[in-house]
């Protein structure tokens, strides 16, 4: 097996060919913030939080979808990157209605964690306070579109791990939303197996178990990675 060696924030690391910069950073113990990335499903490079700088490349590279190549010298925490990441998180907060104090995911929210990581204490962009609605038609789960950050993890989990493809993205641009079935109420989508993987995959409190109140949602985010490894390598213990 071919191996590439590269440097990430001064740490030298050897990694199998075909792995991404994000994989290499994880192995080197260098934290890179992510939101749309989730082990177990394919990467889409949508949240742009994992952007890094590579010496000799003028472009910023999304670590989750860029292959780690021989001799790369990667910087993950330059001033510019920190600044852009903070702006990205601010843009996300300004886009939806993210009110931690009344959210089911408070204390167990990846968006909240990332905000803390990048040092975002308030948004400099004007809040848009959208009115996106809430779908509570499913018997066990609910989706509050106001808390959705369009990471599409639920879409990918449902399609790639569960194989049901209940979710997809509807509309375009700022009007984008996670659509159930053929733009039906979630509860009426026959394809839904009520497996709850989307609830676990959701980084925020957008998809939740009914009956949960503030700070009660505890998503099992390792589940998808466990399931895919289990299926591929027949390792059924966690």
């Amino acid at each position: 097996m071919a191996v590439n060696t590269l440097t990430i924030d001064g740490k030298e690391i050897a990694i199998e060919a075909g792995k991404t910069i994000l994989d290499a950073a994880k192995e080197a113990g260098v934290p890179i913030p992510t939101l749309c990335h989730m082990e177990g499903v394919h990467d889409v490079g949508a949240c742009r939080l994992c952007i890094v700088e590579a010496e000799g490349t003028p472009k910023l590279l999304p670590a989750c979808v860029t292959a780690a190549t021989e001799g790369m010298v990667i910087h993950t925490q330059t001033e510019k990157l920190q600044n852009y990441r903070r702006m990205t998180v601010e843009l996300i907060f300004a886009e939806g209605n993210h009110v931690c104090s009344i959210c089911v995911a408070n204390g167990n929210c990846e968006l909240q964690d990332v905000a803390v990581d990048v040092g975002m204490d308030h948004s400099r962009f004007s809040y848009r306070f959208p009115d996106r609605g809430c779908d509570l038609s499913h018997s066990q789960f609910g989706i509050d579109h106001n808390r959705c950050i369009m990471c599409t993890r639920c879409v990918r989990v449902c399609d790639e791990v569960e194989g049901a493809h209940v979710w997809d993205v509807g509309s375009r641009g700022p009007d984008c939303f996670i659509v159930a079935g053929l733009d039906q109420p979630w509860g009426e989508v026959d394809a839904c197996t009520s497996c709850g993987k989307c609830v676990d995959a959701c980084p925020t409190g957008a998809i939740f178990h009914k009956g949960e109140t503030t700070g009660e949602k505890e998503g099992d985010r390792g589940k998808m990675a466990f399931l895919t490894t289990a299926r591929e390598k027949q390792e059924w213990t966690r």
């Binding site: 889409v44 490079g45 949508a46 949240c47 742009r48 939080l49 990205t88 843009l91 996300i92 300004a94 886009e95 950050i149 369009m150 599409t152 993205v169 509309s171 375009r172 641009g173 700022p174 009007d175 984008c176």
Partner: peptide
């Protein structure tokens, strides 16, 4: 904008 990535969408 298609709405996929954060910087372009928001």
């Amino acid at each position: 904008t298609c709405g996929k990535c954060v910087p372009c969408r928001t």
